[in-house]
């Protein structure tokens, strides 16, 4: 185990605690936030606000640095286009999110909490990602 691996584990662990503490790992809580026209629970807006309050200065520093603290480059996304893939993909993701109240992180965290329903969701999500990869490989082979 090197420093890079241990550091990534620590980040994943803090992320997991954040999802548990905030209520994001609880699908009923998430659906309460997404139910804008029912009894609306605005809590999750504060999760986003809190995360960005820390993220904003961190990414400002990241943009100015040449290298990461543990070495290697800082990999910031370079894509800028608002294309069909971005918008359609996000819409499909949002529909799935609203169906069960799980997005990727909470699905994995609740699986770690030994919730059978979360394991079912996560296995289906992994299958969806493999279907995406298969479609992408097929397109590359065809062109």
């Amino acid at each position: 185990m090197n420093k890079v691996t241990i550091s990534a584990f620590i980040s994943g662990l803090i992320f997991s605690f954040g999802l548990l503490l905030s209520g994001m790992a609880n699908p009923e809580k998430v659906l309460g936030f997404l139910d804008l026209f029912g009894a609306w629970d605005p809590s999750l807006a504060l999760v986003m606000g809190g995360a960005i309050a820390v993220g904003l200065p961190a990414f400002l520093i990241a943009r100015k640095r040449e290298t990461a603290v543990l070495g290697g480059s800082i990999n910031l996304p370079t894509k800028r286009e608002l294309d069909k893939r971005l918008l359609l993909g996000s819409l499909v993701f949002g529909i799935g999110w609203g169906l069960a109240g799980f997005c990727p992180g909470p699905g994995i965290v609740a699986t770690g909490a030994a919730e059978t329903g979360a394991l079912v969701f996560t296995l289906a999500m992994v299958s969806g990602m493999l279907i995406f990869r298969w479609l992408e490989n097929r397109n590359t082979a065809a062109s």
């Binding site: 993909g89 799935g96 169906l99 969701f121």
Partner: peptide, 14 residues
Amino acid sequence: AAGLLVGIGTRYAA
């Protein structure tokens, strides 16, 4: 169904 949609959608949207 939700898992499949989330898996495919998030990868397309990167």
